[in-house]
């Protein structure tokens, strides 16, 4: 069985014809070659595959591809504009929020949602907002600080 799914991916229209038992993560990584979104567990337990759907974070490993019909999907590749990193990406680089980098794309997508929803998040709100993104390297603090530097700024 194949299903045709139309959706917007990082602002571009996509039409894919795929087996509907596949996940959004699998399709964007394999069929659409956007490998920035990472698979850490496949069970929704690590947040490595976090993408935004209509602006809201989801574990793309748990989203069946057919569910994104008509939706706007944003992946890590959708944040930089004209070769310029998004302010959140810059903050992560400049504040030591990245080590191995494998959780980073998912973490940044969660950070984007935190700041989109609430331009001045508190430390606890930031920690709550990234509580579904496991990081084994940083101890989270520099990630929290990096996001915190953007509080009250235009992002």
């Amino acid at each position: 069985m194949k299903a045709t799914v139309c959706f917007s991916l990082n602002g571009e229209k996509q039409v894919v014809e795929v087996d509907p038992s596949r996940t959004l993560l699998d399709v964007i990584r394999t069929d659409l070659s956007l490998t920035g979104t990472k698979k850490g567990c496949g069970d929704g337990d690590c947040g490595g595959c976090t993408v935004l759907i209509d602006g809201v974070p989801y574990n793309s490993c748990l989203v069946l591809i057919a569910k994104v019909e008509g939706k706007e999907v944003t992946t890590i590749e959708g944040l930089e504009k004209n070769g310029q990193m998004h302010p959140i990406q810059e903050a992560f680089v400049n504040h030591g929020a990245i080590q191995c980098g494998f959780c980073t794309p998912g973490m940044i997508m969660s950070a984007k949602y935190i700041l989109d929803k609430n331009p001045k998040p508190t430390e606890n709100e930031i920690r709550q907002g990234i509580s579904g993104n496991l990081c084994r390297c940083t101890g989270y603090q520099k990630i929290v600080e990096a996001i915190g530097t953007l509080a009250g700024k235009e992002v």
């Binding site: 490998t35 920035g36 990472k38 930089e80 680089v93 980073t104 794309p105």
Partner: peptide, 23 residues
């Protein structure tokens, strides 16, 4: 000095290549 990591940008943008990204 607090030099930003040289691999920071590629990791922040999803451009860094990990093994499962290879096909």
């Amino acid at each position: 000095k607090r030099v930003p990591r040289v691999d920071g940008a590629e990791k922040a943008t999803g451009q860094a290549i990990y093994v499962d990204d290879i096909s």
